[in-house]
Amino acid sequence: MRRLAAAAALTAAALILTACNDSKGSTPSPVAWTKVDVGAEPVVLTEHGGQLLVGLRDRGAKVVPQLVVLDGDQRKKVTVTPSPQSPYAFEAIWYSIAYDGKRLLALGGAAGGAHSNTRWTVWTGTLDKGLVEHPQTFETFGGQTAGQLFSAVITPSGGALLGSWGGVETGNDASVWLPQGETKWVRQNPAKTALQSTPSLLVGGSYGTTLGEGILLVGSQVRLAPNVVAQEAAIWRSTKLNQGWSRMALPEPGDRSQALTATCTTSCVISGYVDGQLALWQLDEKGSAKRLTSVPSIPVGDKDKLPPPIVDGDRIVQIVAQDNKVKVLTYRDGGWTVQESTGAEGAVADAVLTEGKVYLIAGNALWTTTLS
């Protein structure tokens, strides 16, 4: 009887322990977000060395694009000076702001003209002296063969603007603009490089960031063959600024895929979609790529915005919005955890990690949390 009683007690204890573990594993606690008041609508984030730069849109101000810096408990408003020769600079919306601890390079855009095409503005400066807009000729970013611009980057060899332009042969090429002197920007010729589209392969970039001495550009390639059209997630990388471009199709692309954004240190994590579902890839220091497995099923399409993935030590965090509900997906040791959110809600636009805190633009507001 004593043996039976002891066995029963052990069994009961094991069942209780298992139930507790299952409950803890199946229902992770939600992520609590706290709203950060920055005085206007946040539209883009960037960080360096513990400094968080928040690009703002103040619809009621004389100069719409604004910039603030959050450095610990300190807050500084950066002077943003549009040139009087460029009227669209007053109403520009930030698309991308790059910062390397010293230099600032920013890309703004405002709809204008008879067809409401985006009128691009380029800005440079420092946190101390502020951002100054440098007017460009119409042909620099506009005209019948104009494409889109999407990213400003700063590498150790200099800054660049990334986008697309009417192809040398067909379609659109991926394009790079480099500065000439202090104020002029010049589009570089992509002919006979991996950035050029051909009759059998169309190049489609969507986001760029710095990778070491060079640039990582993510997007998709469309392969054209008789009776075959295949869109595959792809990346392009340079060895140094605009030199030595190469192209790579990302593995396991499914029937239709696109890389949308990326975060790089010495290696990269890339996020996008495959067949309408969230997908992530890792690019190691040697240039080999793999697709992460068992990614939670989250619908992602062409018009959806994904913040860049967050890399925190041995874990990867991807923030998404599903039906305007913010979800935090964490990958560690080959497994995923999905957490709901409290506080933050709405469409997500950008996210960064700095000084152990995550900052997120969601629902046209800035939020912060410390991930457990």
Rank of each mutant, 00 (worst) to 15 (best):
G204H: 07
T368H: 09
T46P: 04
A8D: 14
A13T: 08
G214A: 13
S197V: 05
W165R: 11
R187D: 03
G50P: 04
V295H: 07
N21D: 15
E182P: 00
W94F: 01
K327Y: 01
N172S: 11
L280G: 02
V222H: 03
F90Q: 03
R332A: 10
R332D: 03
L260A: 01
Y99C: 06
N189D: 13
G346C: 09
I361L: 02
T137I: 06
V338Q: 15
L241K: 03
T193Q: 08
T337F: 09
A111W: 11
V63C: 01
W120T: 07
T293G: 07
A106G: 10
T370Q: 12
L250V: 06
I235W: 00
T121H: 13
L283N: 06
K240W: 00
C264N: 10
Q277E: 15
G109R: 05
V122K: 07
L149W: 00
A14D: 08
G313C: 12
T81D: 09
L329I: 14
I270P: 01
A262Q: 09
K24N: 14
W185Y: 06
V348E: 07
S157V: 07
V78A: 03
P28W: 04
G142A: 15
E133N: 15
I310S: 04
S29T: 11
P30T: 02
G158Q: 06
Q136R: 15
T263Q: 13
W33S: 04
Q148E: 14
Y88I: 12
V122C: 08
E133F: 09
D304S: 15
V31Q: 04
A160P: 13
G163R: 01
N21G: 15
A152V: 07
G356C: 07
K192N: 11
K357N: 10
W123Y: 09
K62Q: 14
A344Y: 02
G142I: 13
T342Q: 02
I235A: 02
V69W: 00
T145E: 13
K102R: 09
V64W: 07
R315T: 14
E169A: 04
P190K: 07
Q258K: 12
A8I: 02
V31S: 08
G108K: 03
Y99Q: 05
A347I: 02
R223I: 02
N117T: 05
V222G: 00
W185A: 00
Y359E: 05
D37N: 15
T330H: 00
R332H: 11
V203K: 11
P307M: 04
G130E: 08
V218G: 05
D312L: 15
Q180F: 13
T261C: 11
W120G: 01
L195Y: 01
R256V: 12
P87Q: 09
Q318P: 06
S175C: 11
G181C: 05
T155P: 06
L360N: 12
A230V: 06
G181M: 13
E139P: 06
V132M: 10
Q221G: 10
L306K: 03
L371S: 04
P156I: 11
G363L: 08
N227W: 04
A6R: 14
A249N: 07
F138M: 13
K184S: 15
S116W: 12
G167M: 01
A146C: 13
E340V: 13
D323Y: 05
G244S: 06
A225V: 03
V54S: 07
C268R: 00
A349P: 01
V218F: 00
A32T: 15
V338M: 13
P253H: 15
